[in-house]
Amino acid sequence: MQEDRAFTELIKRHDGIIYKITRFYADDTDSQKDLYQEIVYQLWKGFKTFRGEAKISTWMYRVALNTALVHLKKKKKRGHRVSLEGVVLKQEEDDPLLEERLKILYTKIKDLGDVERGIIFLFLEGKKYKEIAAITGLSSNNVGTRMARIKEKLKVQIIKK
């Protein structure tokens, strides 16, 4: 019971992380809700064995990104099987300008590879190279190199358009 309470508190405190990952990786609302539920489930599975060696938010980013990566690749051919009625997502305020800019952002990152997508997400979340390295399993130098390439790619996209 106490463990369940600690878990729900954790999710409530950090549910923004899960929401943003679902929007970053999944295209439509159903897929976002499905991924959201899967991430919460994976976090619940891992919560019992979490030993606090990493910061809890770092651990959450890692599990959530791993889940998004694998779950959506498998999901493409399987469709949904679980009821999504109980999944309530956060929502940006009704701001057409922001919505439009977010749409452009999501379109841009779709052209990136899986590794780059993970890195740019963590970068936008304000993570330092060292923390991005801890979550992705790359070295800090590699993250830096990869970020420089991402910037180049984004510039090329603008020139092409």
Binding site: R5, K20, Q37, S83, G86, L98
Partner: peptide, 21 residues
């Protein structure tokens, strides 16, 4: 915009988890 939103309840979180389980 997202920071101040609180939509999740304890019950909802546990229901989501159990449903998936």
């Amino acid at each position: 915009q997202l920071e101040h939103q609180r939509k999740l309840t304890d019950k909802l979180i546990m229901e989501m988890t159990k449903d998936r389980y």
